[in-house]
C-alpha cells in the first residue's frame, strides 16, 4: 500500500463492503425504534428512539415462550449431536476398521439430503414416537443436518491429536471409554466449541421442520414465530414489531459469533477444507 491512489481504493472498497453487509441490520434497528406514521417514511439516520415495539413484542405472551423453545431446541441439539458425535469421531479418527471410509462417506452424503426429501417419512417417524407438535421431535429431526458435520469436523480434529497421548493412557490400562472421556474430550475443547456453535446456529435458524412438525403457538420456535407475524394484508404488517422481534433474536447471535469468531472459522474450514 505505497501509492496513495491504491490506498484510497482500498478504503473505498472497504467502506462500500461494510455498508453493504451491515445496512440491512442497521435499517432493521432504526425501523424497530420508530412508531406510527414515522415507520412509513424511509430514513437513513435514526430519527426516534421509541422502545414501544420492543415492549409490545416482549409482552406478547407467546414471544418469550418462543425464545425459550428455541433455546431448549438448540441446546438439546448441541448436547445430543456432540454426545453422539464425539464417540463416532473417536472411532473414525483413531481406529482403523473395515468399512471406515465408505461409512464416513455415507455420513457425509446425508448432509446432501434435501430436507424436503425426508419430510413425509419423518412425519411418520415423529408421529409414531408421539413427538408431533413437540420440541423433542424437532431436536431429533435436526440430527439429520447437525450430526454429519459434527462427526466430520470432530473426526478431522481427532485425527490430528498426537498419538503419544493415547499410548501413555493405554499403557496405564485405560479402555477406550476412559480414553475418550478423560483424554480426548478435554483436548477437543476448541473443536467442541466450534461444532457446538455451528450446531446451535443451525438449530436456532431452522425453519422447514419447525414449520411442519409443530402446530400450536406454545411449541413454535423463533423463525416460525417471526415468519408467521401477519397483519390484515401485506400493507398492514406490523413492521415495527417484526423488526423489533428480529433484532431481539439476532443481536445475541451476532454477539456470540463475533466473540467466538476464531473458533467458528476454524470449525467451518476444518469441515470443508481439511477432510
Amino acid at each position: 500500500m505505497r501509492r496513495p491512489l491504491a490506498l484510497a481504493g482500498l478504503v473505498a472498497a472497504c467502506a462500500v463492503l461494510v455498508v453493504y453487509l451491515l445496512f440491512p441490520l442497521y435499517y432493521a434497528v432504526i425501523t424497530s425504534l420508530k412508531e406510527g406514521s414515522d415507520l412509513f417514511r424511509p430514513d437513513y439516520w435514526p430519527t426516534s428512539f421509541d422502545p414501544v415495539n420492543y415492549l409490545r413484542v416482549w409482552h406478547q405472551q407467546s414471544f418469550p415462550r418462543t425464545i425459550a423453545n428455541s433455546l431448549a431446541v438448540a441446546g438439546g441439539v448441541v448436547v445430543l449431536s456432540l454426545g453422539l458425535g464425539v464417540g463416532a469421531a473417536y472411532a473414525f479418527g483413531r481406529v482403523r476398521f473395515r468399512g471406515r471410509r465408505p461409512l464416513l462417506f455415507a455420513i457425509l452424503t446425508v448432509s446432501m439430503f434435501p430436507q424436503v426429501a425426508v419430510l413425509s417419512g419423518l412425519f411418520e417417524v415423529i408421529g409414531a414416537l408421539g413427538l408431533y407438535d413437540n420440541l423433542g421431535g424437532l431436536i431429533l429431526s435436526y440430527m439429520i443436518f447437525t450430526l454429519p458435520f459434527t462427526v466430520w469436523v470432530l473426526t478431522a480434529f481427532m485425527r490430528d491429536l498426537p498419538v503419544e497421548i493415547e499410548e501413555a493412557a493405554i499403557l496405564d490400562g485405560a479402555n477406550p471409554l476412559v480414553l475418550v472421556t478423560r483424554i480426548f474430550l478435554p483436548l477437543l475443547g476448541p473443536a467442541l466449541a466450534a461444532t457446538a456453535l455451528l450446531a446451535f446456529i443451525a438449530a436456532w435458524n431452522e425453519f422447514l421442520f419447525a414449520l411442519s412438525f409443530t402446530l400450536s403457538d406454545d411449541q413454535r420456535t423463533v423463525p416460525v414465530a417471526i415468519a408467521l407475524i401477519t397483519g390484515g394484508s401485506q400493507h398492514e404488517l406490523p413492521w415495527g414489531n417484526v423488526m423489533a422481534a428480529s433484532v431481539i433474536v439476532t443481536l445475541p447471535l451476532i454477539a456470540l459469533v463475533l466473540v467466538l469468531q476464531r473458533r467458528l472459522v476454524a470449525g467451518l474450514t476444518a469441515g470443508a477444507v481439511k477432510g
Binding site: P24, I201, N205, V224, V249, V257
Partner: peptide, 10 residues
C-alpha cells in the same frame, strides 16, 4: 449469523 427468516423479513 442472521437467521434466514429474519434476513427475509428485513
Amino acid at each position: 449469523a442472521i437467521p434466514t427468516v429474519v434476513s427475509a423479513r428485513m
